[in-house]
Computed example of a mutant assay.
Amino acid sequence: MALTDPKIKQAKPGEKIQRLSDEKGLYLEVHPNGSKYWRHKYRFNGKEKRLAYGVYPEVTLKQAREKRDDARKLLAAGVDPGVVKKATKSLRIELAANSFEAISREWYAKQLPTWSDTTAKKRLALLENDLFPWLGNRPVSEITAMELLTTLQRIEDRGAKETAHNGRQVAAQIFRYARLTQRCQTDPASDLKGALAPKV
């Protein structure tokens, strides 16, 4: 019998893990501590496998079924959804490692010994207050000159023209470092020479 939200909410933990079956391989594990985890049992190439879909109620019954249905579509196409999930996770990790913020902090750590305390604090404040909020999560290889210009113009718009110019110079050093470490192919900051309003 298919699960319902009332049935899930009424499920009480026992001394051992309980399994509440839904449909088409989807089930909910109720742990002794009261936590409820979505699982999906399936077979691929004759082997029984499982996927984890998160915790109820953060992942709703409807969402868990959608994840199961997506996995079944992959199975119908002859693809192991477990392999796809691992590949997707690896890609997310790689993108996070190559984000503008991750590479900026890596560059910052390498440059730190060469700076005075004042310079180090100014560089970090510039990154954290003016660049990371807009560019931090972006893969460094995907940031365009227009995207960087828009970020720097936000600094200009509050009247901090010198900070905007400093932002371009710092970004140029970060992109240069990213190119040298083969995380990107271009330096959008170099395309912005003359694009900002004069400091004075």
Rank of each mutant, 00 (worst) to 15 (best):
H31S: 04
A2L: 14
A77E: 14
Q111V: 01
Q18V: 01
K89M: 10
V140I: 15
F175H: 08
L127V: 01
Q10C: 05
R168K: 14
Y37E: 08
I93A: 12
F175C: 09
R179D: 00
V59H: 04
S141E: 15
M1P: 15
A145Y: 03
Y177V: 05
Q173S: 11
Y108E: 04
S116L: 06
W134A: 13
K9H: 04
Y42L: 05
P6R: 10
V200G: 12
R65H: 08
L74A: 13
E48Q: 14
T186S: 13
T163V: 14
K24A: 14
T118W: 03
A2D: 11
T114C: 03
G159F: 06
T151K: 11
P13F: 02
K73C: 02
Q182V: 14
P32M: 05
L3Y: 05
L26N: 00
H31A: 10
P81G: 06
L196I: 05
I8L: 09
R176W: 01
T88E: 15
A64Q: 08
S116E: 07
E58I: 12
I17K: 13
V59K: 01
V79Q: 10
T114F: 11
T163Y: 03
A87H: 05
W115L: 12
S99Q: 05
V84S: 07
A97L: 10
Y177P: 02
K193R: 12
K67T: 04
W115G: 10
T163E: 02
K85Q: 15
